[in-house]
């Protein structure tokens, strides 16, 4: 969160709505620890990262769906065991649990 604050602040000052995704748990080998964070604004601009680049694209989609949809926070899991929900995996073979929410608090 520390390293994405400047971007978040700039977006907020420009009146942009922002969603934040944070790694809350890792199973097996994972590139980033809990707390790694990524922010997405309503125009699809991105700050920060939550993996080594494997799942960021899918996270942007999820974040935009929250900002342009019902605005409900949600838990999202990426990883090899997750065969139905998302066709996105981590090359390291780990499982990553993310919490996505609009920045409205």
């Amino acid at each position: 969160m520390r390293e994405i604050l400047d971007d978040i602040e700039r977006w907020r000052q420009n009146g942009r709505r922002v969603a934040v995704a944070r790694v809350v748990n890792i199973e097996g080998s994972g590139p980033r620890d809990p707390g790694a964070a990524m922010a997405v604004n309503e125009d699809g601009e991105v700050a920060g990262s939550v993996s080594g680049g494997c799942v960021e694209g899918a996270v942007v989609g999820e974040a935009l769906a929250i900002l342009h949809g019902d605005g409900q926070p949600k838990l999202v899991t990426f990883g090899y065991s997750d065969d139905d929900a998302f066709a996105v995996g981590l090359t390291c073979g780990g499982i990553i649990h993310l919490f996505l929410e609009p920045l409205n608090w």
């Binding site: 809350v24 409900q72 926070p73 949600k74 838990l75 919490f99 929410e101 608090w105």
Partner: peptide, 12 residues
Amino acid sequence: CTVIEGPSVGAK
């Protein structure tokens, strides 16, 4: 601290 599962998801 953020509730990620339970009755008030997102509460801080």
